[in-house]
Design a binder for these strands. Structure first.
Lengths: 323, 323
DNA sequence: CTGAAAGCGCTTACAG
DNA sequence: CTGAAAGCGCTTACAG
């Protein structure tokens, strides 16, 4: 079923059908009605491929995340959806799983002109080849930073936030503070580790331990905590995500230790999960991060040589029972 | 940058470039090399819109979910991704949020020929207009059922599973068993409620209470539990999702009651979350559900008039500290 | 207000 | 083994 058939059915030219489809107001009421009638009768649906090929515009944006199962990520995505919708865009989600092949495949939607722009929550800094794939297409990094100066990004001040979290633990009398971090290919992971270490040095603490989780799941957090408990266990743990912290909590409990008496735990993100398990955490303005990312992207789409922006939003320390 | 430019650069016809792009083996090595060279030099990326328009094939499938933040959902999606990849397909995720407008917008990717087929985890049964949008395009319902006989689906036997869960509570001596259910527009919600009620009748219990959560979040589960606690509180709760159960747990704890002594709690799905919070639950074979859904869809894509299938997979009761 | 025609960037018989 | 040409289904100046 194509525009041609409709034109035939309605007894007009394809141009007229197209005009009706695009709400052009130059179509006579009579013709418009006949076209509308034909469309309804034949249950016609426009071919988006053809339209987008012709107009070079899709009003779709791609959102690449490494793990949709992460609640922080899901929250950011909600912010992105809201704002995108407000601007007449729809979003396509691509779950990369940090897999390079899958990322490449996702990016082809961009280079293949299926979407108008991309928002990434992935660590692309370590992957120049992927960044090259994006080329000069509209791109915004979200809750993660680009090393190169050409891509806009939005997030929080990770060094400050992690310094604050770790300071709170130290000031609460904790002497042996460990960190559960994510893969260092993420810039935010490097920044938060920097914040952690700076406090360890500042407070002149002797103990220092960083365990790396392979992914932001509770299971990975549990495994990391179990490693920390093996010998010379800490009396406090700072995890870079609430999901990791949830796993740590579980491991501590399984080891027969108490939270916060034996080990205090602080998470990161401020997700609903943290609330459910009474976890002290750093709250990120997730929705706002998503919304702002869309704003920056819209700007870039409408004005390709808009200057690169780096937006830092506010975070908040939330004290609960775990620390 | 188009195939034309490449042809020009390489000194061949566009047909030859296209052949190289599609790995046709009828191209002379010399020409192939020149084309490859030109592609590399100009950083050419094929326009997918044009290709898909021409071939009427995208090797992409759309996955519509109502809420990616639900961990069960995320797990099913992982299964879908795995299996799709194995078949040379990539997946596009669309988070409908159960919003009809957004669902419609997502479905236009199908009717607009951008994807070859669709897997839905949404409740479309109540929305014949959306089903109409899909028309006869390849479609599989996942972890949810279609009333109409024309669409394939894969899931578990929800009546059996919920009967089992509620029976366990009753046989453990619970007399006042409540249910926290999801929106009844979901068929699975209706089936699980049927299972719950059948046990209440079978065991001749007098108490019966069903609270409906607006969405599958912990927050909604908390609110539902708070309602149940207001007057005449239950001594056990069966929730149709682990996330809802997590919220119920939290509400019970905040009310100063103990789990399972005062109130036993059983969830549904068997997610990592349930493990983290020691929740008794019904485990669904999430990954397998996703994988099977893809298999059915592939079948439908390759063979449009393949018969409709309804696949039921096994579930498992997992006993933990909450009941 | 409307239609004929060009063109978006590909692929694929067809002819050589 | 290769190229010229048709065509996928749209939109949009252009002419009337």
């Amino acid at each position: 079923m194509s525009i041609q058939k409709i034109a035939q059915l309605a007894g007009v030219s394809v141009a007229t059908v197209s005009r009706v489809l695009n709400n052009s107001d130059t179509v006579k009421a009579k013709n418009r009605d006949r076209v509308l009638q034909a469309i309804k009768e034949s249950n016609y649906q426009p071919n988006l491929l053809a339209r987008q090929l012709r107009t070079a515009r899709s009003y779709m944006i791609l959102v690449m995340v490494s793990n949709i199962a992460n609640p922080f990520c899901a929250e950011v995505v909600k912010g992105i959806e809201e704002e995108a919708e407000k601007n007449g865009y729809r979003i396509l989600l691509c779950n990369s799983g940090s897999d390079i092949e899958r990322s490449r495949s996702g990016l082809s939607l961009l280079s293949g002109k299926i979407v108008d722009g991309i928002i990434t929550m992935d660590a692309f800094s370590k992957l120049p080849e992927l960044a090259a794939l994006i080329g000069s297409a509209p791109w915004v990094q979200c809750a993660e930073y680009a090393d190169a100066g050409t891509v806009s990004c939005v997030g929080i001040n990770d060094v400050d936030a992690s310094q604050h979290a770790v300071s709170q633990l130290a000031e609460g009398g904790r002497q042996r503070i460990a960190m559960i971090n994510h893969d260092l290919s993420y810039k935010y992971a490097r920044l938060r580790e920097r914040g952690y270490k700076s406090v360890i040095h500042l407070k002149d603490l002797e103990y220092q331990a960083v365990e790396y989780a392979s992914e932001l799941s509770s299971r990975a957090g549990m495994a990391a905590m179990q490693n920390l408990l093996k010998e010379n266990p800490p009396d406090a743990v700072f995890a870079v995500s609430d999901t990791l912290a949830a796993g740590a909590l579980r491991a501590i409990q399984q080891a027969g230790l108490r939270v916060p008496e034996d080990i205090a735990v602080v998470g990161f993100d401020g997700t609903e999960l943290a609330d459910m398990i009474s976890l002290t955490t750093i709250e990120q303005p997730s929705r706002d991060i998503g919304r702002k990312a869309v704003d920056l992207l819209m700007n870039k789409i409408d004005n390709p040589d808009a200057p690169t922006e780096r937006v830092m939003l506010d975070w908040r320390f939330i004290s609960r029972a775990s620390a």
